[in-house]
Design a protein around this nucleic acid. Structure first.
Length: 578
DNA sequence: CCGTCCCGCCATTCG
DNA sequence: CGAATGGCGGGACGG
């Protein structure tokens, strides 16, 4: 039930780390003793000295709940293994027990999700650091990303205010908006695309990195995104409202809110966050550092249950990524409540985006609108060039050539159809996952904004019952046309796979269906990038409504198995499953 | 070997 | 100037 005690026990540092390290500088020893006394008997007892008194019935409840939540439970259980059987002396404190994520959990447990604004929701860094028994430095890390989400705000030195998730919806809406303004969705897509192509250009002919993003109108750098309500009320100078971790955290979140499959891989994120883009592989170190930070951020975002760790398996191999598991539908850029200044700015940027979109895509489906924006030109060029490589016969840059579709066996279409049916039937007893599926194609969003670049793949999460982690297969929406059965049309089916972090301790199930890749004979259209493009083009012309429906489907393991079986036997030679 | 990321030095910024 | 913040990356840990 309530593994509070358990939870607590394993966090009591009986002895210093096994690795002596240098003696901690700040009076850590003292605090350690103090909090040991406290936590040994009282579970996370909040004694909140001084003014604030964050302890409310709610917070307790919250703590219990979070303690009881499966994921956490599991995680903690893992961490707490060992060190039980009275072996005195060196209690081996696993590295994980000190993880930022766990620390963050402990921190969050102290406050309710939705604090009573009337109450005093003060946070004292000193107290927190003391009670959680950590160095201050670590608290800063947490506070920074919480602050980036406006879940807390700095009151003054050493003093924060807790807002909980109260502001989350607005914050996310805002972040998404800003993310769109920065065209992060496009940038990500480009990066993916590029790396994908590079992979196939084994001829090392490193094409220049004249980075499309080069010029970019204005807004080169981004600053801390604020909220009308939670502005820099810090008594101190409002200066320094742009600082790495804070901003980086916001950017990171933006990436999720802007990308269509809400999955962001670490390296892509890092690249974008680096800003001036990965000029050659030169900035190895910079990249590494960025990734380091992202891990920090990701860890607290995970604690917040906003993201979840996954693995994306593509041709190259597995790479770490995160999936957005937070709220999906929040107020979409409401311009009602806002200070004049903010509102104005908001309006400006908003219209600017609109204009941009209008100018560029006033006539959907036509290519001429690409003539304005340098990045688009570049993109088109790139696509064209690619297509040439693939088809050996140049085609129009944007116009979709249906020829490529023919390469997809109709069997696939049938399978897809079957899947659809079963999905439909089962979508009733669906479990969760529904909410997240409601990604709404924003009016100015990636969807309509940039057809050729937005990802066409629709992630379908298939939680397993017994096996390892859930599957996630990306399928192109056109695979699920209204009546695929009655009219088996050439269907493209792009499948990537994704493995969820194995929470149950079992080996993660990893479905890798490398769609029509360079498997058998070198079919021209075998290139994943080609596949992707094909999908893109088609996606742009159909409503995502169907996709919505399907995302909510779960429990299709049997169907999946069948699909995999068939794929293996006749369609796609390369299929691995671990 | 590699993905993670703890740890704490030390540069900045604050008060 | 001392304290509060937080950038940063070496290198440890775990698989």
């Amino acid at each position: 039930m309530f593994s509070n005690s358990n939870f607590e026990n394993c966090n009591v540092p009986q002895a210093m780390t096994k690795t002596p390290r240098k003696a901690s500088t700040q009076g850590t020893v003292l605090t350690e003793i103090q909090s040991n006394m406290g936590s040994l008997t009282t579970p996370t007892k909040g004694r909140e000295t001084g003014t604030g008194e964050p302890w409310t019935p709610t917070s307790n409840l919250k703590m219990l709940m979070s303690a009881a939540s499966p994921e956490i439970r599991n995680r903690e259980k893992e961490l707490c293994m060992d060190s039980e059987g009275g072996d005195e002396g060196e209690k081996q404190i696993s590295r994980k027990e000190k993880s930022l994520g766990l620390l963050c959990h402990k921190f969050l447990a102290r406050y309710p999700d939705y604090p009573n604004p009337a109450l005093n929701n003060d946070i004292s860094l000193d107290d927190v650091a003391t009670e959680l028994n950590v160095e201050r430095r670590r608290i800063y890390d947490i506070m920074n990303v919480l602050e980036s989400l406006h879940m807390v705000s700095r009151l003054a030195k050493n003093r924060y205010t807790w807002h909980g998730r109260a502001n989350l919806p607005q914050t996310l809406a805002k972040l998404r908006q800003v993310g769109e303004e920065h065209r992060y969705g496009q940038q990500m897509q480009q990066i993916r695309q590029r790396s994908l192509e590079r992979e196939f250009d084994s001829d090392g002919e490193e094409k220049e990195n004249e980075e499309v993003e080069g010029g970019e109108q204005g807004q080169k750098e981004m600053f801390f995104v604020e909220l009308p309500g939670v502005e820099f009320k810090a008594a101190s100078v409002n200066s320094r409202k742009d600082k790495s971790l804070r901003v980086m955290s916001q950017k990171f979140v933006m990436l999720f809110l802007v990308s269509t499959p809400r999955v962001v891989s670490l390296d892509v994120a890092a690249r974008i966050l680096i800003g001036e883009d990965q000029v050659a592989d030169q900035d190895k170190s910079k990249f590494k550092t960025k990734v380091r930070r992202l891990y920090d951020i990701a860890n607290v975002l995970r604690s917040l249950k906003l993201i979840e760790k996954v693995h994306v398996t593509e041709e190259k191999g597995r790479k770490p990524a995160f999936e957005w598991t937070g709220p999906e539908d929040f107020p979409n850029v409401k311009e009602t409540t806002a200070t004049t200044a903010t509102a104005k700015r908001k309006l400006e940027s908003r219209t600017s985006v609109d204009n941009c979109a209008k100018n560029l895509f006033s006539s959907p489906g036509s290519k001429r609108s690409f003539t304005r924006h340098p990045s688009l030109i570049k993109l088109a060029k790139s696509i064209q060039e690619d297509r040439r490589k693939i088809n050996s016969a140049p085609t129009s840059p944007v116009k979709s050539d249906s020829s490529s579709n023919e390469f997809f066996p109709t069997k696939m279409a049938q399978l897809a159809a079957i899947c659809k049916i079963q999905f439909d039937q089962q979508s009733n007893d669906t479990v969760h996952l529904t909410p997240r599926a409601q990604f709404t194609p924003q009016p100015t969003g990636a969807m309509s904004f940039h057809p050729a670049q937005c990802s066409p793949l629709i992630p379908m999460l298939l939680p397993q019952h017994q096996g390892g982690g859930p599957y996630a297969i990306y399928m192109h929406p056109s695979s699920f046309r209204p009546h695929p059965l009655t009219r088996p049309q050439p269907t493209s089916l792009a499948v990537r796979s994704m493995t969820f972090e194995d929470k149950t301790g079992r080996s993660p199930s990893d479905v890798t269906v490398q769609g029509h890749s360079s498997a058998t004979n070198k079919l021209p259209t075998s290139s994943p990038s080609a596949l992707k493009r094909v999908c893109s083009e088609r996606t742009s012309e159909e409503s995502p409504s169907e996709a919505k429906r399907f995302d909510s489907s779960t429990r299709v393991r049997p169907v999946l198995d069948m699909l995999l079986l068939l794929l293996r036997s006749s369609v796609v030679p390369t299929l691995t499953r671990m």
